[in-house]
Write a protein that binds this DNA or RNA. Sequence first.
DNA 1: GTAACTGCAAAGGATTTGCACAGTT
DNA 2: AACTGTGCAAATCCTTTGCAGTTAC
Lengths: 163, 163
Amino acid sequence: MKRRGLREAEQRLADADYRLTPQRALILRLLFEHQGEHLSAEELHALVGRTNPEVGLATVYRTLELLTELRVLQAVDLGDGRARYELAGEDRHSHHHLLCLSCGRVEEVRDDLLERLEQSVEAEHGFAILDHQVKFVGLCRECRTRERWKDDPERGEGEGPGG
Amino acid sequence: MKRRGLREAEQRLADADYRLTPQRALILRLLFEHQGEHLSAEELHALVGRTNPEVGLATVYRTLELLTELRVLQAVDLGDGRARYELAGEDRHSHHHLLCLSCGRVEEVRDDLLERLEQSVEAEHGFAILDHQVKFVGLCRECRTRERWKDDPERGEGEGPGG
DNA sequence: GTAACTGCAAAGGATTTGCACAGTT
DNA sequence: AACTGTGCAAATCCTTTGCAGTTAC
């Protein structure tokens, strides 16, 4: 569905006089195929490696950096100590994430109230907002419903249906 | 003025059966003396070293971790690749930061609209929010006034009330 | 053809950890 | 004594970088 986005992204590379190497093309494709998964460099490298084991991790890092620079990607911090990436929204910066403590899932939020908040901040602090990062940590609807939280005083639980 | 907070923090250590060692006492004191500066582990270690060069960096890290666990501190990510810390508000989680791209200053925000936003998110996503992190990146009033920004060909026009 | 790109491995910076010693209870 | 806490240094983790060989344009 977002196939067009891929073309645009490739075009943006060309427009900025960068080469569309097979590595970059593959990485870009995977990024679009795994939209919404917030892949890290290493995860992406693993994905790349499925078909092209030759591609080095450094290349993945370099490509990620390049694509971020070109505003094709945006780095997001999900609090696990590594950078994760998502496709950058065309019109608007929109990293508002709901991070579930129980299952680790990441939902995206789009809420007009945030714009309201920005306006308020700009007005009250005289601060010109260029970008933002909003992250809510808590329990998603499902985990909350499951109530598997009250049992666990500490933490560690295997959320594994895959087992 | 916030001397009482220091005592409370020390008490919290004791309550949790941790010892108030000279290192911890010093670190805690410095943390209160440098409120609002968002010190990193290494900065704090340097401060500690002014009077007690013997204290190791690892101890600072360990203390920071401990104090965070005890909710005396909160780690904040200001985007410079290292963890920074601030005293945790008693009643309310409150890391809402305005990070100025020009001078690097960090302001704190307290805005009711954020609570409104939280409620909206809880209602619409069924997500139980336990904590949040909100960071706005842009230009503070002063840097904005100085207009040292318009020189930059990168960003050009856009939001220009100055017009 | 050639500057851009890649892969590899080594380097880098922040944070953690293993371990023997020191300080408390 | 039995632990907890500390200092040091080595280890770890993510990410970057140097360099020689490769390749897209």
